[in-house]
Design a protein around this nucleic acid. Structure first.
Length: 201
DNA sequence: TCAAGGATCCGCT
DNA sequence: GCGGATCCTTGAA
C-alpha cells in the first residue's frame, strides 16, 4: 500500500498510488491460484519476488498480482485498486475505447456519457479496472516490477499502519475456512479510490 | 478431449 | 439485486 504503479507507453506516463490489496499466501491457501501446485498459469508465483503475476479472470478482465515470497513459495498480492495520480487523459481514453467495443455489435451504442461521468479518482477502483487503466494484460506476466526502467514497474512507498483497514477477501466463496474469512484484504481507510465491492464490506 | 466455473464489471430492474 | 459478456484453466474421463 502506498507504492506507486508506473506505466510508460511511448511518451505517455500513467502513475497510480496503490490503495487496496489482497494477500494470497501459498499452496495451503484454498483461495490462492497456487492451491493445486505449480501449473503453467501460476508458474510466476513460484518464482522470485517482485515479479508480476497477471491472469485473465471471467474471460474478460485481467488481474495484476505482485509476487511476494522467496522462490518456491507461491505467495502474491492482488492489486485491487489504485488512485490515479498522473496520466488521467490516457486512462480515460483506454476506458472509452473499451466501453465502445463492449457495446459494439451488442445492443448498439454505449449509453451516452457513461465513460465521461466516472470520477478521476475512481478510474482504477477494482482489480479489472486497474489493468484496464494501465493497459496490463498477460504480455506483462513475469515482468520484474522492481526494475525501474521497465515499461511497467512499482516505485516504493508506504502508508501509516494506523491508516490501514482490513477485511475478508472478495469473491473467494469457493474456499473453505479459515481462508474464506481471513482478513487479508488491506486498504487505506477512507480512501475514495477503494473498489466498490471492497468499500461495501 | 470435455465440462465446469471463475480473485469482474456494467447496465437495467 | 441480477444477469450477460467471454474464454481460459483446471481436474476428471
Amino acid at each position: 500500500l502506498g507504492s506507486r504503479l508506473v506505466r510508460i507507453a511511448g511518451s505517455s506516463v500513467r502513475i497510480g498510488r496503490v490503495v487496496e490489496v489482497e494477500a494470497y499466501i501459498g499452496t495451503e491457501d484454498e483461495a490462492c491460484h497456487a492451491r493445486f501446485g505449480p501449473t503453467p498459469r501460476n508458474a510466476v508465483m513460484f518464482g522470485p519476488p517482485g515479479h508480476a503475476y497477471v491472469y485473465l479472470v471471467y474471460g474478460m478482465y485481467h488481474c495484476l498480482n505482485v509476487v511476494t515470497e522467496i522462490e518456491g513459495r507461491a505467495a502474491a498480492l492482488l492489486v485491487r485498486a489504485v488512485e490515479p495520480i498522473e496520466g488521467m487523459d490516457q486512462i480515460r481514453a483506454v476506458r472509452r475505447e473499451w466501453l465502445d467495443r463492449r457495446h459494439r455489435g451488442g445492443s448498439g451504442h454505449a449509453p451516452a456519457g457513461v465513460a465521461a461521468e466516472v470520477a478521476s479518482s475512481r478510474l482504477a477502483s477494482g482489480p479489472g479496472l486497474v489493468c484496464l487503466a494501465f493497459s496490463i494484460d498477460r504480455s506483462d506476466n513475469g515482468v520484474d516490477l522492481c526494475e525501474g526502467t521497465s515499461d511497467l514497474h512499482l516505485e516504493p512507498g508506504g502508508v501509516d499502519p494506523a491508516a490501514v483497514a482490513t477485511g475478508p477477501r472478495i469473491g473467494i466463496g469457493y474456499a473453505g475456512e479459515p481462508w474464506r474469512s481471513a482478513p487479508w484484504r488491506f486498504w487505506i481507510a477512507g480512501n475514495v479510490a477503494v473498489s466498490a465491492r471492497g468499500a461495501r464490506q
